[in-house]
């Protein structure tokens, strides 16, 4: 680690990170996993620093995860649900950014329903910005926590075959994961009906399948995506019944995967839509709860990297 330096002021996406960056975050996160399992889990790394969770879109899991991560590092964490305040009053994104900036936060964690909005906001503020999900673009901490979960269970990322299944079209989780897993040398597949795949997805470095029976053959990891409620009834897929029949994960579809294949889902799950309960709750194969645990550790690691930039972290040689 002597020669490594994380060179980014913000964390806006996986795109732009090097394999060394990713490995460094994951290594750091590993140490936080151990710390989080202790009774005493508080550090003072971010004491006196202000972290604002600025969510322009509803979220419980991600916001709470960042809040826990920030508090365990000693930061003052403020949650702003912008979806129900300024936006309603017609304030522009840049006005909101300028307002927040005037409060001198040290880290802004931002989620926004529009792709590119977090980057736009990052250009207008003086602090570090972490993208907690922008539209259908990126959700880098999700991809990092997924990678950490896989690496801890399989010992590696390179050489694994990973199928990302479901609503790739609207998924920022899929885009971030495709970028990260490709960067780390994994083989990535996407499996979905054509109505849920973006154009030219094959140019992102994935193999494309439209049939679970083919797409899951010999995979190490099955990563299911959430199907949004408003996309279930007719416009993209005909019905939840048909979706589950052809694309929902159950043991029958899983049997062509490797015998030790593991199952992931970014949550929240639609049981009986994209994933059957018996698979989701299989303690030997489902990593869904571990993903949540890794989420806190990965976000602590990301916050530490931001902190180094403003001088709270250990000195970089």
């Amino acid at each position: 680690m002597d020669h490594y330096a994380y060179r980014h002021r913000h964390l806006l996406g996986i795109d732009g990170l090097t394999p060394e960056d990713i490995t460094h975050v994951l290594d750091l996160a590993d140490t936080y996993v151990e710390m989080n399992r202790q009774a005493e889990k508080k550090k003072s790394l971010l004491r006196g620093r202000t972290l604002i969770n600025c969510f322009f879109e509803n979220s419980t899991r991600t916001r709470t995860s960042f809040e826990v991560a920030g508090k365990r590092l000693g930061a003052d964490v403020i949650n702003m649900a912008v979806a129900v305040s300024s936006m309603r009053k017609g304030e522009t994104l840049i006005d909101t950014a300028m307002t927040l900036n005037a409060m001198h936060p040290d880290v802004l964690v931002v989620r926004h329903p529009e792709s590119g909005a977090v980057q736009l906001l990052s250009e207008k503020v003086d602090c570090a910005v972490i993208n907690a999900g922008d539209g259908s673009h990126e959700h880098p901490t999700q991809a990092l926590l997924d990678a950490l979960t896989i690496r801890r269970r399989k010992g590696k990322l390179g050489g694994l075959t990973i199928a990302i299944c479901g609503d790739v079209l609207h998924s920022r989780v899929a885009r971030s994961n495709i970028a990260l897993l490709n960067a780390m040398g994994a083989r990535v597949r996407v499996v979905a009906p054509r109505t849920l795949l973006p154009a030219a997805v094959e140019h992102l470095g994935v193999e494309v399948f439209h049939d679970m029976a083919e797409g899951l053959v010999d995979v190490d990891i099955v990563m299911m995506l959430r199907l949004q409620q408003e996309r279930m009834h007719g416009s993209f897929v005909p019905s939840t019944r048909e979706y589950f029949h052809f694309f929902g994960l159950d043991y029958d579809k899983l049997k062509v995967a490797k015998p030790d294949a593991l199952i992931m889902h970014p949550g929240p799950m639609n049981r009986g839509v994209e994933i059957g309960s018996e698979v989701a709750d299989d303690i030997d194969r489902s990593l869904i709860r571990q993903q949540v645990e890794m989420g806190v550790a990965v976000r602590m690691a990301c916050l530490e990297l931001m902190a180094r930039d403003f001088g709270n972290g250990p000195a970089i040689k």
């Binding site: 007719g234 416009s235 005909p238 019905s239 019944r241 048909e242 052809f246």
Partner: peptide, 8 residues
Amino acid sequence: KELTEIGL
């Protein structure tokens, strides 16, 4: 407006 259950 909405697709039928084409697969089924």
